[in-house]
């Protein structure tokens, strides 16, 4: 029971975290400022825009009689998605695996590093330049090398996804720690709190909303990184589907795979947004469990 009560209090603690920048806003302003949650009309406008683009594209292809080998029509891409769904779904699995695994490696790494960099100022000064350099490496050149070194399995993909995604997460965490209320830190020190207690009780909870902002930036890069890693050498995955379709002059299948890639990214982004709203999205006024 004690375990359960501390777990539930932990959950209620993180449920209460909120974005520090939105204090003092009315509920309405808060909900419209709350990123990631669109209301119905926003979705409708976005979908209508997409539909309009598809219609124009379809019309152009039919009227201009352009070859399907150069520009396939949306309807043709869609029929490819249906015809080749087995192939596409089968190959989405390794891509999703690589993305999620790489993302978790990146998250754990970023957290560990953030603790170290937050604790030791000299490490932050020495380490930050190296980390920034790691972000300047061109993925197109690095990916084949990582595949060369680590083979065609899951490993190089995890490494590449982690390399691409960990930096935004790390920066978000470091900035989040810095945002901790100085008065709160003094207060905890006056109670005799250790550094570690201040870190867990004040700095980490303050950083959580920042972390989620970083996660949502990262997750949009993650699938692209996984696809690119596959592109540079893999046995299966959406990147391989795209590569094979390109080599056999099948832009319709390429685009069908591209749609799957974006669907994957959207799905992962939605998971992130959902996790955020479950953990820290609840605002005082609408949190019935308190």
């Amino acid at each position: 029971m004690i375990g359960w009560s501390s777990l539930s209090s932990f959950i209620s603690t993180i449920q209460r975290l909120k974005h520090p920048g939105v204090e003092g806003l009315s509920d309405h302003e808060r909900s419209s400022r709350h990123q990631g949650s669109f209301d119905g009309s926003q979705w409708a406008i976005a979908l209508a825009g997409l539909a309009l683009m598809a219609v124009l594209w379809e019309a152009y292809v039919r009227l201009s009689d352009v070859s399907a080998l150069i520009l396939p029509s949306p309807s043709r891409v869609m029929s490819q998605m249906v015809d080749k769904r087995d192939l596409l779904f089968r190959n989405s699995v390794p891509t999703l695996q690589a993305t999620v695994a790489g993302f978790f490696v990146s998250l754990s790494l970023a957290f560990l590093l953030s603790v170290l960099l937050d604790t030791f100022a000299w490490l932050r000064r020495a380490g930050m330049p190296i980390l920034i350099v790691s972000q300047t490496l061109p993925l197109t050149a690095i990916a084949p090398l990582v595949v060369l070194w680590f083979g065609f399995g899951l490993m190089p993909k995890i490494i590449l996804v982690a390399l691409v995604t960990f930096f935004p997460v790390l920066v978000a965490l470091l900035q989040g720690y810095e945002a901790t209320d100085r008065d709160l830190a003094s207060l905890l020190r006056s109670f005799g709190a250790t550094r570690w207690q201040i870190f867990w009780m004040a700095r980490v909870p303050t950083a959580l909303p920042y972390l989620f902002a970083g996660l949502r930036i990262s997750i949009t890069y993650a699938v692209v990184a996984a696809i690119f890693a596959e592109y540079s050498g893999a046995r299966s995955g959406l990147g391989i589907v795209i590569l094979n379709a390109k080599n056999s002059f099948r832009p319709d299948l390429m685009l069908a795979a591209v749609v799957f890639c974006s669907a994957l990214t959207l799905f992962l982004y939605a998971v992130c947004a959902l996790a955020q709203s479950l953990l820290i999205g609840y605002r005082s006024g609408r949190n019935p469990h308190v």
């Binding site: 975290l17 008065d183 006056s190 005799g192 909870p205």
Partner: peptide, 29 residues
């Protein structure tokens, strides 16, 4: 011995309930 401080701004943790804010010092100890 530690002297309990009450800071200028309340410095309550927005993610803790009033009761859980009130027990902060005890929890630290």
């Amino acid at each position: 011995v530690v002297f309990a401080l009450m800071p200028q701004r309340d410095a309550l943790m927005p993610w803790r309930s009033i009761l859980d804010n009130a027990i902060l010092g005890l929890e630290v100890n």
